[in-house]
Structure formats: structure tokens, C-alpha cells
Simulated assay, not measured.
Amino acid sequence: RRISLQAEGLSGQTDPADDTDPVQLFSAGQAAGQLQPNGQDLVYTGSFGDLKIDAEAVGGRVLPELDGAGEATVKNGVGLIKAPPKSLRGQSVDIASLDVSSGTARVTVSGPISIDADGLIDANLSIKLKDPKAVAAILAGAIPEHKSEIEQGFAGIAMLGNQPSMPLKIVKGKASLGFIPLGKIKPVD
């Protein structure tokens, strides 16, 4: 009926395959999660605190410690547990809320995401920011090669206030934030 997990000092690494050394992915001071069926769907509710993502796991990028919480419904999730898919294609998730923060910077995402048979993503998300300048500083530090574009873009977003909201749409892999095209996302496996 329900599975609940709680952990302190949680960490993750890659599976050492083919005699390669495992790569540290992350560590979290605390994490909790719960899975509960809703008909054939599966509802996940969870949170984490003091999450540190290892720079090696994200191409040498440096991210601050993160806290987060969220709730999402995996469509046909009960069936997916019984017979785990070999691909993400044909799967869909409805994010009630996914909230990630560091200091005063906070990003909240909600809305449906699906992946079609060709691996193309479709999503109709709402993105809410708290303290856009702080979010921009984190992103600029993590992606220094796009620092100027990030700062310019978030300067415009900051003009919408300290807690702006905007739509992020992805149609057949083509992403746009409001009316601003962001580019194409490669098909997923």
C-alpha cells in the first residue's frame, strides 16, 4: 500500500563495471521518500537536505549544497514496478511540485512531462523563481562558459519581480521559455 524510506548520510556512486573505479555522484545529509499507488499510477513524495553533487559527476561543474522537496505522479507506475521498462520512451510524469533551493535562491517546477515513442520530450511546465539574481549566480558559477548569457537573461527575468513565474514548454523536443526559444533536446533512450 505504501513504501516509505528515510536516510541520513545518503550517498550514491556509479556501479563499478568492467573493472572501472566507481564515480561518486552525490551525498545528502538527509533524504526521505514515499511511494503510494493511486489506481494504476504511482505517487512519489520526497525531500532531501544538504545535497552535494560531486563535480566529477557533472563534468567538473560546481554546485552549492541544495535542499529540495517534491511530489510527482508516475503514470502507470504500478505496472512499471512489476515490469521495469528498458527505455524511458512512452513514459510520463505529472509533477505536482518540485522545489530546489540553496540559500535565498529557489526554483519550483510543476506540470506534465512525457516522452514519445521516438524519445522526444513534451512538457508544459510552470517555472517559479525566488530571488532570480541568486539563481543566476548559481547557474553562472556552474556554467561559466555561458555566464554572460545567463546574467543577461536573468536580469530581464528579475525585472518581473523577486518571485517571477514563467511557462517552459517543450514540444517534440523543442524547448521555449515563454516566447524565448531555448533550442532542441536530443531524443532520450
Rank of each mutant, 00 (worst) to 15 (best):
L66A: 02
K82N: 13
K75F: 11
S97Q: 15
I115M: 08
Q91C: 09
I53Q: 02
V78A: 08
G60D: 04
D67K: 10
R89H: 06
V107E: 07
K52L: 13
V74H: 05
V100A: 08
D50P: 01
R89W: 05
A83S: 15
D67G: 10
D116Q: 09
D67F: 04
A117C: 08
G68S: 04
K82A: 15
A117Q: 13
A83P: 02
A105P: 00
S92E: 11
A117N: 12
T104I: 12
S102P: 03
D67T: 13
S47Q: 15
A55I: 10
R106L: 11
P85A: 14
T73F: 07
S101A: 15
G68M: 02
L120K: 13
L80K: 12
I113S: 03
T108C: 01
K86T: 14
G60W: 04
R106Y: 01
P84G: 09
D99W: 04
A96Q: 15
E71I: 14
G111K: 08
V93I: 14
A57H: 06
A72H: 03
I115T: 02
L80Q: 15
T73D: 07
G70A: 09
A96H: 14
L98E: 05
I121L: 10
D54Y: 07
D50S: 13
I95Q: 00
P112I: 07
V93N: 03
V109E: 03
D54C: 09
A117E: 13
G60V: 06
I121K: 02
D94N: 14
L80N: 09
D67I: 07
V78C: 02
D94C: 00
G59R: 06
I113A: 03
F48T: 03
